[in-house]
Design a protein around this nucleic acid. Structure first.
Lengths: 196, 196
DNA sequence: TTAAATTTGTACCAATCAGTATAAAAACCC
DNA sequence: GGGTTTTTATACTGATTGGTACAAATTTAA
């Protein structure tokens, strides 16, 4: 163990809890005092561990992608059947986005809408996250091109899918019903995939 | 002319300019001083004309729907051919959402993502705006059901369309290229409409 | 036991926020 | 012109914001 007074909190857990606060209240809507209260730590500890509000938020985005998005994307990237893979993926996304266990909506989509015209570093990080989502789904659709509606390319299908999910996530934030979200997701499946 | 010192500004023009400020900087990101500076008026005048920040914003949303969204929706509701009608509608939406003449993104979608978990009145107003968009497109798809991909109902098509547009609008806010936006929109057209 | 290192807790700062009190200014009516 | 009405302009308030100074607390190394 290192010298000095021991840390009271775990950095990863703190990042997770800070994520939940930003997720629910937005970037501007979150005061640093809200975060220190949720983590039960003091502001100097927060600054020592993560830097200021902006730096903390950038790390929260990384945490979100690594711990929320990546785990449900993995099965899709490994599936043998696009239709079933996407169906499961949509179920998982819906569970997150509906906000029963987590705050509603997609953190990337919501914070992008809110803050990207204000802080360049945040805009860059979130735009990068979208670009990587595009590339991910593009690879998935390339791999299962035989199941894709031949009217669209994998690139266009990826943009359409990511945009649909972001739009549905905003809808969920407005308090939309589970059925409404699922009807949008299943509509995508029915039109974007080749019908047997 | 009424008694008293004459007003320096026009209420509708002021609402329009206030809309542009909120649109670009978000609800929390906009200070009332930003608005009074843009309108070249003083705070007491703003309060007398529109009430506080929240009431002003609610009126801005109405203004946006009446003066930005409604004019481009009208041709679609009157068109005889869904494909051409939607194509033109997407062109008009893209022009707005790309933010060349106005701030980027869709005001309803962006403010919903930002603020709906904070202020109940704003959430209600924006959720109502989405519900009415759903109903509008549902009517359009009902009317042109013969042109719709038979895999989906008009209701589901409406949810999918509105969600896609909201998602694309967020993407535009991240600085996406015109091609990227158009590829998403045209992908929707190719899969959601019955192919000849 | 003492010194060095590191974190915590309290208290504070300057800036900014939404909102308001008050009086001057500018019009109309008589 | 005097009185009334309405809007404008200045200046202010109390609350909240992100960020920091500083000392007490708690550990390891010697």
């Amino acid at each position: 163990m290192s010298r000095g007074r021991p840390k009271k909190f775990n950095n990863d857990q703190a990042l997770h809890d800070a994520m939940l606060v930003f997720w629910r209240h937005g970037y501007r809507g979150t005061a640093l005092d809200d975060i220190t209260a949720a983590l039960n730590i003091n502001k100097p500890s927060l600054y020592a561990a993560f830097g200021g509000k902006e730096e903390l938020f950038l790390q929260v985005i990384d945490h979100y992608r690594a711990h929320i998005l990546a785990p449900i994307a993995k099965p899709l990237s490994e599936c043998n059947n696009l239709k079933d893979g996407l169906r499961q993926y949509f179920r998982d996304i819906a569970k997150i986005v509906m906000g029963k266990e987590t705050p509603p909506g997609c953190l990337v989509a919501c914070m992008l809408a809110e803050e990207c015209c204000q802080t360049e570093s945040i805009k860059a990080k979130l735009a990068g996250a979208i670009a990587e989502s595009d590339r991910f789904f593009c690879r998935v659709f390339e791999k299962h091109k035989d199941e894709l509606n031949p009217q669209i390319t994998p690139e266009a299908a990826a943009v359409l899918l990511v945009s649909t999910l972001h739009g549905l996530s905003i809808r969920a934030r407005a308090g939309a019903s589970q059925e409404s979200i699922e009807s949008g997701a299943s509509a995508f499946l029915r039109v974007a995939l080749k019908q047997p």
